[in-house]
Write a protein that binds this DNA or RNA. Sequence first.
DNA 1: GTGAAAGCGCTAACAT
DNA 2: ATGTTAGCGCTTTCAC
Lengths: 343, 343
Amino acid sequence: MPRKATVTMADVARKAGVSVASVSNYLNNRPYMSESMRARIASAIDSLGYQINLSARNLRSGQTHLLKFVIPDLRQIYFAELAEDVLAAAHQRGYGVIVESTSNSRERELEAVRSMGQRAVDGLILSPLMMQPADAELLRGDYPLVVLGERLFDVPAPHVLIANRSGVREATEHLLRAGCRRIAVVGAAARGNTELSSRTIRTQGYRDALREAGVDFDPALMIVTEGWGSLDGLTAARRMIDDGLPFDAVLALNDLMAWGVMRGLRDNGIRVPEDVRVVGFDDLDESAYVSPSLTAVDPNRTEIARLAVESVVEQIESGRRAPAQTVEAPARLVCRESSPAVE
Amino acid sequence: MPRKATVTMADVARKAGVSVASVSNYLNNRPYMSESMRARIASAIDSLGYQINLSARNLRSGQTHLLKFVIPDLRQIYFAELAEDVLAAAHQRGYGVIVESTSNSRERELEAVRSMGQRAVDGLILSPLMMQPADAELLRGDYPLVVLGERLFDVPAPHVLIANRSGVREATEHLLRAGCRRIAVVGAAARGNTELSSRTIRTQGYRDALREAGVDFDPALMIVTEGWGSLDGLTAARRMIDDGLPFDAVLALNDLMAWGVMRGLRDNGIRVPEDVRVVGFDDLDESAYVSPSLTAVDPNRTEIARLAVESVVEQIESGRRAPAQTVEAPARLVCRESSPAVE
DNA sequence: GTGAAAGCGCTAACAT
DNA sequence: ATGTTAGCGCTTTCAC
C-alpha cells in the first residue's frame, strides 16, 4: 500500500471534478475558462496543498527557467557585485540562476560550457578568464549564450563588453585636465589570455588620452604587478617611491589596487589628492567609503548585468541563439576625494 | 517532417545495437557489463555527440542534484565569501547551486522557502535575516534543509551556528590579556529579528570575558551604529573621540566596521595598535591587506559551508530531513598588526 | 469551454 | 549480462 506522498495534478483534477488539462490551463493562466471552474480548481489546489512539480514541467516543456552564470571567483568583490546584479535581473524576468565559480580554472570553464547540452539550464552567461582562443570553438551551439568581459576572442554569440578603453581614457583625461603630467599606471600581468588582458586594453585608453593631449608616454610609468589585490597596489606604490620615480597621479587598473596604492602613498607621507591623485577602476561599493574616498571608473555593472540577462532571455524566448555582436555598457567616471572633479 | 534536433538514449541504443537500459546502465556506471558493450556504447555516444537530458533524468529519478542557497545580499563581502565556499563544497559533492539573494526582503526569504514544494532543487541552505519566529512554521516539511547563522528561532532542521559568542569572548580575552581595560564595542542595531541579533549575541561574549576577568562593564562603551558598513565604523570612531570617551581598544562586531574605525582613529592621530587596539569579526580576505592589517575573529566560513553542504547532502541521500540540532563551527582569533598576539 | 490521450527522455523493476 | 516495458507528472494537440 504505497502512500501517496506527493499531490499531483491528477489529484487536483479529481478533487475539482475536472480534467488535468483544465488544471494545467488554470496554472498557466490560459484564458477562456469559466469562473466556476477556476474557483473549483483554486479551492482544490488550496485544500490539497498542491504544488507543481517543476521537473515534470521542465521535461515536458523543454525549459527550466534557469540560467547558468559562470565566473572565475565570487571572492573577488567585482564578481560578487556583478553576480548580485545578474541575480536581480534574472529574478525580475522570472529566472533562477545557477552560479558556477570556476576558481580560475580553464578546465572548469570548459566543463561549464560543455555541459550545456544537458539542458539543465535554458541559457548561459559566461565571464571567461582562462579560456583560450582555441576554446572558442566549443562555444558554438544553438543554446542561448552571452559572453561578458574583454574581447578575448571571437565569440559566436552576443558579447557584452566592458568599456575598458574608453573608461580609462576618460579617467586619464580627467587627470590631465587636473594638471597631472606624470600619471603612473598600475596593473597586473595577464593570467589567462595574454594578448587581450584587461591591462592591455585599459592601457590603450590611457595612451589614447595622452596622445590626444600631446603628452609623451613614459614606459617607466607603467607599473606591472603580480596580482590584482590591494597588497599588489601597496607594493607598487612602495616600489615607485623607493625607485625615486617622479609621478603626480596613479591610475590603478582596479579599485582594490587603488586602495593599496593610497595606503602605500600615505604610509610614506604623500598626501592624496594634494600631492598625488589616485583613480581606480570598478567603483566597488566600498570605494565610496575608503579614506580618502576613491575616484573611480564605474563600468556600470548593473547595466552590464541587465544587458546580459535581457539578451539571454530574448534568445530563450525566440528559441535560438542571437548572432555574434558586441554591446558595450558605457562607463562613467565617479569623482570623489582621491581626485576631485576639476573646473 | 520534424528534424531530430536532439539525440536521445534510444538513438544511442539503436546505433550501438543494444537496449536503452544498457545505455542507461552505462551512463550510471553500473557494474556487470561486458567490455564489448561498453565500448560499442561509448563509441555510439561519441559519434552521435549524445548528452543526457537532465530534465528527463530529474523527473524520473526525483532528484535534481541542485541545492538552493538563500542569502540576504551577495554584495556583502561576508556572504560572497561564504557563497564561494558553499559553491565549492557543493561542487565537490556533485551538486550545483541556485543562489538566491533576497535583497534583505522577508517576503523573498519566505518565497524561497515556500517554493521548495516544487522540487526544483533537492535541498535548501537558508541564511535568514528577516524571517520572524512566527515564520519558522513554514520551515516544516520533509525536504532537506539546513539553516545558517544566529539562532533566531527554533528550526525544525539542523542549524549551523556561527560561534558568535565564543568568538567574541576569545577576542575580548585577547584584548584584556594585552592590558586593555576600556574596550569599546561597535555594532549595529538589529534590522530583522531584534531579540537575537548578531550584536546581542556577540555582546554577550564580550560580557562573558569581562566578568571572568573581573572587569567592570561600562555601558558607555557600547556604541550602536546605523548599519554594518565601514562608514558606520568611521562615524562611530569619530563620535567616540568627539565625545571624549576614554577607550584603549575597539572591538568592532564586523570587519567592515573595523576598517572604518581604524580610518577614523588614524584621521584623528590615534595610532593603531600603539594607542588603541582594534579587532574585527569575520576575517574577510581583504582584512589581511588593509593597513594596519586587521586582527579578527575568523568564524571559519569554509567549515560552516562544508558542514552545511555535508548535512543537506546527507539528508538528500538518506531521503529524509535530519532532526533539529545545532552544530557550531569553532571560531578562532587571527592576530595581525591591529592587535598583535600577546606573550 | 472542456476533456482524452499521447508522449517529453529517462530509470528501474522484472524477465530472460 | 542484457532487453522489455511501465511509468515519473506535466503540456499540448485535437476532439467534442
